[in-house]
Design a protein around this nucleic acid. Sequence first.
RNA 1: GCGCUCGUAGCUCAGCUGGAUAGAGCACUGGUUUGCGGUACCAGCGGUCACACGUUCGAAUCGUGUCGGGCGCACCA
Length: 530
Amino acid sequence: MKQRVSALLREKIGREVVLEKPRDRSFGHFATPIAFSLAKELRKSPMIIADELASSFESSEFFSKVEAVKGYLNFRLSEDFLAEYASWALKNSSEFAKQEKNQKILLEFVSANPTGPLHIGHARGAVYGDTLYRLAKHLGYDITAEYYINDAGNQIDLLGLSIQLHARENLLDETVEYPESYYRGEYLEGLSRDAMEKFGVEIFHDESRQKELALWAKDEVMKIIVKDLGDLNIAFDTFVYESTLYDDWDRVMQKMGSGIYKKDDKVWIASEAKGDEKDRVVVREDGRPTYLAGDIVYHNQKFERGYDHFINIWGADHHGYIPRVQAAIEYLGYDSKKLEVLLSQMVSLLKDGEPYKMSKRAGNVILMSDIVEEIGSDALRFIFASKKSDTALEFDLAEFKKQDSSNPIFYIQYAHARIQTLLAKSELSYADIMDASLKNLGENADTLLFDALLLPEVVEDAFNTRQVQKLTDYLKSLAASLHKFYYDVRMIGTDDEAKLLKLMLMVALSIKTGLSLMGIQAKDKMSKED
RNA sequence: GCGCUCGUAGCUCAGCUGGAUAGAGCACUGGUUUGCGGUACCAGCGGUCACACGUUCGAAUCGUGUCGGGCGCACCA
């Protein structure tokens, strides 16, 4: 809808105009302050310009009213247009809010090390990424969700060592000494037992078999991670293993040409010249590549695979890392602007106003799976999607366990369930309802209809700005409009029953579609457990 | 110290390509609905948009500076 209004204005005025939704609905559906910016160029008062523009729209069947108020230009869409649009959407419900964008995108997210289960910080990036993925798919982008598995480097050795130590202490009752850093947590219990069964106890004492143990364990850990993500309705299209990339290192190094040089028996990348703080080591004296080397090969591989755009979601603590990767991309001969890095900030949890306790059992982190168990996947997804991802977030679990309007996911689901109840209660058939006209419903119904039809705009806006909270905000406000309408208007048994239920169908479609874009299934009934 | 980022109601947060009286939820106070579902709705309370200066017809929004919080500043991943 908005696109059409914008297009009309562009045609008429000859430039891109700012379109907004007035807070006060009596001003119409859309409004623009364009006359203010034109005032200076045209040397005329904004009021006069707005008046002239308004009268030039008089003949359009698209609008029922275009008026100039204090320099603003306000548009009211015609009833015919809204009614037709809604009828189309209901008949083609799977197409609603969809588009056909022609762009190939690679979205990399989560990419947590395969050394332990996901914690709450990972969950935020995971939800953010998956929501963007769903939005992009709906908009018709050719998008691939990818997980980069860091299965090379120190952390893998540390995983092997951690299992050995855990097993010796807990399975074999030995006294062991832990190094400064090692992995801990309940998952080691299962890994130790399985390892004992598979390899026998000798492997826990043999330092030379640490690697073997670790390589087996990281696959086991990945199974846990994939399952945890599955519980959040998150799935990946592709997995890339860091360990498989290094064969390509020599070729990639050559490809970077002058971006790479040797000094002090090490290999460096001249990233400072490309905006980084300083040059970075990519191969150490002993010939082992650094983490950055892996990322360079990986990004080269990404670009060689041929995408139009790349999105990475990283933890905010990696923000300093961006310039060096961009530098590498440029030395490789690609446009670093094609790589977009989105940051996902810290999360801190409260429970009934108190800081959520990290459990020793979990290894002093808050496990994602614990939170999912506590409040459910839907609530967790909703919380993380509803806040800007790049600012720190603090939230209270208690709020999401309540069964009333203070819990936004309950509130929205309840709106959807209410509509389903109405439909079940009505004697009218689906065909009767679909045949009804959505016209002459009155002011309140028109407003609700308009709100329900805004979903396509919201979906596109949320994806383009990478701000998925626009979708959750929209659903909250649509649910609020529905609840208010439900309170004000009796529908069953009235003359307008068919019309009103058609309106309800439209609202339900928007809610259901919106929720599904967040990986949440709309409910037809509220059950006490949820 | 340098870089990034944030500072909006008692709390958690929207709003930030400059635009109509600064919004939501929670909390608090009062009212309406007892049924189409456990509910939900309405109203009130509450703000020097951290502070200062600047740009502009117009600044929460842009710029500069100050203060305060977070994160980062590895040949770790």
